[in-house]
Protein backbone atom coordinates (compact mmCIF):
# COMPACT_ATOMS: atom_id res chain seq x y z
CA UNK A 1 0.00 0.00 0.00
CA UNK A 2 2.95 2.27 -0.71
CA UNK A 3 2.98 4.09 -4.05
CA UNK A 4 5.98 4.35 -6.31
CA UNK A 5 7.76 7.68 -6.29
CA UNK A 6 6.13 10.36 -8.44
CA UNK A 7 6.26 14.06 -9.08
CA UNK A 8 3.32 16.24 -8.08
CA UNK A 9 2.37 19.67 -9.39
CA UNK A 10 -0.43 21.90 -8.16
CA UNK A 11 -0.64 24.30 -11.10
CA UNK A 12 -1.71 27.93 -10.72
CA UNK A 13 -3.85 27.98 -13.84
CA UNK A 14 -5.72 25.69 -16.18
CA UNK A 15 -3.36 26.62 -19.00
CA UNK A 16 -0.38 25.57 -16.93
CA UNK A 17 -2.13 22.28 -16.13
CA UNK A 18 -3.00 21.60 -19.76
CA UNK A 19 0.57 22.34 -20.78
CA UNK A 20 1.89 19.78 -18.30
CA UNK A 21 -0.73 17.24 -19.37
CA UNK A 22 0.22 17.79 -23.02
CA UNK A 23 3.72 16.91 -21.94
CA UNK A 24 2.57 13.56 -20.59
CA UNK A 25 1.66 14.33 -16.98
CA UNK A 26 -1.36 12.52 -15.58
CA UNK A 27 -4.29 14.59 -14.35
CA UNK A 28 -5.33 14.03 -10.75
CA UNK A 29 -8.67 15.22 -9.50
CA UNK A 30 -10.30 13.82 -6.34
CA UNK A 31 -8.02 10.79 -6.54
CA UNK A 32 -10.77 8.38 -5.46
CA UNK A 33 -9.86 5.85 -8.16
CA UNK A 34 -6.30 6.76 -9.10
CA UNK A 35 -4.76 6.93 -5.62
CA UNK A 36 -5.88 3.44 -4.53
CA UNK A 37 -4.45 2.04 -7.77
CA UNK A 38 -1.18 3.87 -7.10
CA UNK A 39 -1.04 2.59 -3.53
CA UNK A 40 -1.39 -0.96 -4.83
CA UNK A 41 1.34 -0.09 -7.37
CA UNK A 42 -1.02 -1.07 -10.17
CA UNK A 43 -0.67 2.46 -11.50
CA UNK A 44 2.63 4.27 -11.42
CA UNK A 45 2.31 7.67 -13.12
CA UNK A 46 5.52 9.62 -13.05
CA UNK A 47 3.94 13.03 -12.77
CA UNK A 48 0.58 14.06 -11.36
CA UNK A 49 -1.08 17.39 -12.07
CA UNK A 50 -3.67 18.32 -9.47
CA UNK A 51 -6.76 19.79 -11.10
CA UNK A 52 -8.96 19.76 -8.02
CA UNK A 53 -7.55 23.04 -6.68
CA UNK A 54 -8.11 25.04 -9.86
CA UNK A 55 -10.72 27.75 -9.39
CA UNK A 56 -11.21 27.76 -13.16
CA UNK A 57 -12.75 24.29 -12.86
CA UNK A 58 -14.74 24.96 -9.74
CA UNK A 59 -18.14 26.53 -10.42
CA UNK A 60 -21.81 25.79 -10.90
CA UNK A 61 -23.64 28.46 -12.86
CA UNK A 62 -26.60 29.06 -15.15
CA UNK A 63 -26.04 30.77 -18.48
CA UNK A 64 -28.32 31.09 -21.46
CA UNK A 65 -30.70 28.37 -20.37
CA UNK A 66 -27.88 25.95 -19.61
CA UNK A 67 -26.25 24.76 -16.42
CA UNK A 68 -22.47 24.74 -16.48
CA UNK A 69 -20.68 22.65 -13.90
CA UNK A 70 -16.92 22.77 -13.58
CA UNK A 71 -15.06 19.47 -13.52
CA UNK A 72 -13.50 20.03 -10.11
CA UNK A 73 -16.86 20.38 -8.35
CA UNK A 74 -17.12 17.64 -5.72
CA UNK A 75 -19.93 15.12 -5.53
CA UNK A 76 -21.04 16.74 -2.30
CA UNK A 77 -21.22 20.13 -4.01
CA UNK A 78 -23.32 18.61 -6.79
CA UNK A 79 -25.54 16.89 -4.24
CA UNK A 80 -26.12 20.04 -2.20
CA UNK A 81 -26.10 22.82 -4.79
CA UNK A 82 -29.33 24.84 -4.49
CA UNK A 83 -29.07 25.67 -8.19
CA UNK A 84 -28.83 22.02 -9.21
CA UNK A 85 -31.42 20.87 -6.68
CA UNK A 86 -33.79 23.41 -8.22
CA UNK A 87 -32.98 23.09 -11.89
CA UNK A 88 -31.34 19.70 -12.36
CA UNK A 89 -32.39 17.55 -9.43
CA UNK A 90 -31.37 14.36 -11.27
CA UNK A 91 -27.70 15.24 -11.08
CA UNK A 92 -27.94 16.11 -7.38
CA UNK A 93 -29.91 12.94 -6.65
CA UNK A 94 -27.34 10.85 -8.53
CA UNK A 95 -24.41 12.43 -6.71
CA UNK A 96 -26.03 11.57 -3.38
CA UNK A 97 -25.77 7.87 -4.30
CA UNK A 98 -22.01 7.93 -4.81
CA UNK A 99 -19.80 6.07 -2.33
CA UNK A 100 -19.95 7.52 1.15
CA UNK A 101 -19.66 10.98 2.63
CA UNK A 102 -15.86 10.93 2.61
CA UNK A 103 -15.77 9.97 -1.06
CA UNK A 104 -18.35 12.60 -1.91
CA UNK A 105 -16.29 15.27 -0.18
CA UNK A 106 -13.17 14.39 -2.15
CA UNK A 107 -14.31 12.94 -5.47
CA UNK A 108 -15.14 15.26 -8.34
CA UNK A 109 -17.65 15.25 -11.15
CA UNK A 110 -15.01 15.65 -13.84
CA UNK A 111 -12.72 13.02 -12.37
CA UNK A 112 -15.50 10.46 -12.18
CA UNK A 113 -16.72 11.19 -15.71
CA UNK A 114 -13.23 11.05 -17.21
CA UNK A 115 -12.44 7.81 -15.39
CA UNK A 116 -15.58 6.21 -16.91
CA UNK A 117 -15.88 3.35 -14.50
CA UNK A 118 -18.71 1.35 -16.05
CA UNK A 119 -20.42 1.10 -12.67
CA UNK A 120 -20.10 4.74 -11.67
CA UNK A 121 -23.28 6.72 -11.15
CA UNK A 122 -22.98 9.91 -13.19
CA UNK A 123 -22.95 8.34 -16.66
CA UNK A 124 -26.56 7.13 -16.29
CA UNK A 125 -27.72 10.65 -15.41
CA UNK A 126 -25.63 12.32 -18.10
CA UNK A 127 -27.05 9.93 -20.70
CA UNK A 128 -30.61 10.61 -19.56
CA UNK A 129 -29.99 14.36 -19.45
CA UNK A 130 -28.37 14.35 -22.90
CA UNK A 131 -25.62 16.34 -21.29
CA UNK A 132 -22.68 17.81 -23.07
CA UNK A 133 -19.16 17.07 -21.89
CA UNK A 134 -16.59 19.76 -22.57
CA UNK A 135 -13.12 18.42 -23.34
CA UNK A 136 -10.22 20.79 -23.17
CA UNK A 137 -6.59 20.52 -24.16
CA UNK A 138 -3.74 22.95 -24.65
CA UNK A 139 -5.01 23.22 -28.22
CA UNK A 140 -8.61 24.24 -27.43
CA UNK A 141 -11.98 22.87 -26.40
CA UNK A 142 -14.73 20.74 -27.89
CA UNK A 143 -18.06 19.45 -26.61
CA UNK A 144 -19.12 15.84 -26.95
CA UNK A 145 -22.53 14.39 -26.08
CA UNK A 146 -22.67 11.88 -23.23
CA UNK A 147 -23.80 9.28 -25.71
CA UNK A 148 -20.64 9.72 -27.76
CA UNK A 149 -18.33 10.25 -24.81
CA UNK A 150 -18.73 6.91 -23.03
CA UNK A 151 -17.32 4.34 -25.44
CA UNK A 152 -16.41 1.26 -23.44
CA UNK A 153 -14.98 0.06 -20.14
CA UNK A 154 -12.78 2.93 -18.95
CA UNK A 155 -12.72 4.10 -22.53
CA UNK A 156 -13.98 7.53 -23.53
CA UNK A 157 -13.72 10.05 -26.34
CA UNK A 158 -10.88 11.79 -24.48
CA UNK A 159 -7.79 12.13 -26.64
CA UNK A 160 -4.30 12.24 -25.15
CA UNK A 161 -3.71 15.67 -23.64
CA UNK A 162 -7.42 16.33 -23.11
CA UNK A 163 -9.26 16.64 -19.83
CA UNK A 164 -12.94 16.86 -18.98
CA UNK A 165 -13.36 20.52 -18.02
CA UNK A 166 -17.11 21.04 -17.77
CA UNK A 167 -20.50 19.38 -17.91
CA UNK A 168 -23.31 21.23 -19.66
CA UNK A 169 -26.95 20.42 -19.02
CA UNK A 170 -29.89 22.22 -20.65
CA UNK A 171 -32.39 23.69 -18.18
CA UNK A 172 -35.80 22.18 -18.74
CA UNK A 173 -39.31 23.30 -17.90
CA UNK A 174 -40.73 22.06 -14.62
CA UNK A 175 -42.90 19.58 -16.49
CA UNK A 176 -40.05 17.10 -16.65
CA UNK A 177 -39.63 14.58 -13.86
CA UNK A 178 -36.46 12.66 -13.17
CA UNK A 179 -35.25 9.83 -10.98
CA UNK A 180 -32.11 7.81 -10.34
CA UNK A 181 -32.67 4.32 -8.94
CA UNK A 182 -29.66 2.33 -7.90
CA UNK A 183 -28.96 -1.13 -6.61
CA UNK A 184 -25.82 -0.66 -4.56
CA UNK A 185 -23.08 -3.26 -4.51
CA UNK A 186 -23.00 -4.41 -0.88
CA UNK A 187 -19.21 -4.19 -0.71
CA UNK A 188 -18.04 -1.46 -3.05
CA UNK A 189 -21.12 0.73 -3.14
CA UNK A 190 -20.81 0.96 -6.91
CA UNK A 191 -23.93 0.45 -9.02
CA UNK A 192 -24.83 -3.16 -9.61
CA UNK A 193 -27.31 -1.40 -11.86
CA UNK A 194 -28.19 2.27 -11.85
CA UNK A 195 -31.01 3.69 -13.91
CA UNK A 196 -31.60 7.37 -14.55
CA UNK A 197 -34.85 8.43 -16.15
CA UNK A 198 -35.97 11.80 -17.43
CA UNK A 199 -39.59 11.82 -18.49
CA UNK A 200 -42.55 14.02 -19.15
CA UNK A 201 -46.20 13.13 -19.18
CA UNK A 202 -48.54 15.35 -21.19
CA UNK A 203 -52.20 14.74 -21.95
CA UNK A 204 -52.04 11.33 -20.34
CA UNK A 205 -49.23 10.01 -22.50
CA UNK A 206 -45.46 9.98 -22.27
CA UNK A 207 -44.24 12.93 -24.32
CA UNK A 208 -40.56 12.59 -23.45
CA UNK A 209 -38.51 9.77 -22.02
CA UNK A 210 -34.78 9.21 -21.77
CA UNK A 211 -33.31 6.22 -19.96
CA UNK A 212 -29.63 6.08 -18.97
CA UNK A 213 -28.17 2.83 -17.71
CA UNK A 214 -24.99 2.21 -15.73
CA UNK A 215 -23.46 -0.81 -14.04
CA UNK A 216 -25.12 -3.39 -16.21
CA UNK A 217 -22.40 -3.76 -18.80
CA UNK A 218 -19.00 -2.52 -19.92
CA UNK A 219 -20.27 0.97 -20.56
CA UNK A 220 -23.18 3.21 -19.73
CA UNK A 221 -25.78 3.54 -22.46
CA UNK A 222 -29.13 4.98 -23.44
CA UNK A 223 -31.84 2.34 -23.47
CA UNK A 224 -33.45 3.61 -26.65
CA UNK A 225 -35.62 0.51 -26.99
CA UNK A 226 -37.25 1.28 -23.65
CA UNK A 227 -37.71 4.90 -24.67
CA UNK A 228 -39.32 3.93 -27.98
CA UNK A 229 -41.70 1.52 -26.28
CA UNK A 230 -43.10 4.27 -24.06
CA UNK A 231 -42.94 7.33 -26.30
CA UNK A 232 -46.50 8.54 -26.92
CA UNK A 233 -47.95 5.73 -24.84
CA UNK A 234 -50.19 5.89 -21.80
CA UNK A 235 -47.82 4.89 -18.95
CA UNK A 236 -49.83 2.13 -17.30
CA UNK A 237 -48.10 -0.21 -14.89
CA UNK A 238 -48.26 -2.89 -17.53
CA UNK A 239 -46.79 -0.66 -20.26
CA UNK A 240 -43.94 0.43 -17.99
CA UNK A 241 -43.19 -3.11 -16.92
CA UNK A 242 -43.12 -4.31 -20.52
CA UNK A 243 -40.90 -1.44 -21.64
CA UNK A 244 -38.54 -1.83 -18.68
CA UNK A 245 -38.19 -5.49 -19.57
CA UNK A 246 -36.38 -4.43 -22.74
CA UNK A 247 -33.58 -2.57 -20.95
CA UNK A 248 -31.07 -5.41 -20.97
CA UNK A 249 -32.04 -6.76 -24.36
CA UNK A 250 -28.96 -7.96 -26.26
CA UNK A 251 -26.68 -6.47 -23.63
CA UNK A 252 -23.52 -8.35 -22.63
CA UNK A 253 -24.17 -8.00 -18.92
CA UNK A 254 -21.31 -7.92 -16.40
CA UNK A 255 -20.98 -10.44 -13.61
CA UNK A 256 -19.23 -10.61 -10.28
CA UNK A 257 -19.73 -12.46 -7.03
CA UNK A 258 -22.47 -10.08 -6.02
CA UNK A 259 -24.59 -10.44 -9.13
CA UNK A 260 -24.46 -12.81 -12.09
CA UNK A 261 -25.26 -11.52 -15.58
CA UNK A 262 -28.70 -13.08 -15.36
CA UNK A 263 -29.51 -11.44 -12.03
CA UNK A 264 -28.08 -8.10 -13.15
CA UNK A 265 -30.32 -8.11 -16.20
CA UNK A 266 -33.30 -8.90 -14.02
CA UNK A 267 -32.40 -6.10 -11.61
CA UNK A 268 -31.99 -3.71 -14.53
CA UNK A 269 -35.58 -4.25 -15.59
CA UNK A 270 -36.87 -3.94 -12.00
CA UNK A 271 -34.94 -0.72 -11.37
CA UNK A 272 -35.86 0.70 -14.77
CA UNK A 273 -39.53 0.29 -13.95
CA UNK A 274 -38.95 1.89 -10.54
CA UNK A 275 -37.13 4.83 -12.08
CA UNK A 276 -39.78 5.38 -14.75
CA UNK A 277 -42.56 5.33 -12.17
CA UNK A 278 -40.67 7.73 -9.93
CA UNK A 279 -39.78 10.11 -12.77
CA UNK A 280 -43.34 10.22 -14.09
CA UNK A 281 -44.71 10.80 -10.61
CA UNK A 282 -42.49 13.90 -10.45
CA UNK A 283 -43.58 15.12 -13.89
CA UNK A 284 -46.03 17.89 -13.19
Amino acid sequence: MIANAFEYTAPQSLDEALGLIAGGAKPLSGGMSLIPMMKLRLAAPEHLVDLARLKELNYIREENGELHIGAAVTHYEVESSPLLLGKCPLLAETAAHIGDIQVRNMGTLGGSVAHADPASDYPAALQALEAGIVLRSAGGARTVSAKDFFIDTFTTALEPGEIVSEIVVPVEPGLTGTSYQKCKHQASGFAVVGIAVRARRENGVVSLIRVGVTGLSGSSYRAENVEAALQGVEPTGEAIRAAAGLVAHSVDASADMQASSEYRKHLASVYTAKAIHAALSRSA
Binding site: D100, Q186, A187, S188, D256, M257, Q258
Partner: peptide, 16 residues
Protein backbone atom coordinates in the same frame (compact mmCIF):
# COMPACT_ATOMS: atom_id res chain seq x y z
CA UNK B 1 -8.85 -14.92 -2.00
CA UNK B 2 -11.60 -13.60 -4.25
CA UNK B 3 -12.93 -11.23 -1.60
CA UNK B 4 -9.59 -9.85 -0.58
CA UNK B 5 -10.45 -6.17 -0.43
CA UNK B 6 -13.40 -3.96 0.42
CA UNK B 7 -14.46 -3.82 -3.24
CA UNK B 8 -15.70 -7.41 -2.89
CA UNK B 9 -15.81 -8.09 0.85
CA UNK B 10 -19.01 -6.54 2.17
CA UNK B 11 -18.29 -5.14 5.62
CA UNK B 12 -21.34 -3.92 7.50
CA UNK B 13 -21.52 -0.13 7.61
CA UNK B 14 -23.43 2.13 9.93
CA UNK B 15 -25.87 2.90 7.11
CA UNK B 16 -26.63 -0.82 6.69
Amino acid sequence: LMTGEFMDYAMPRASM
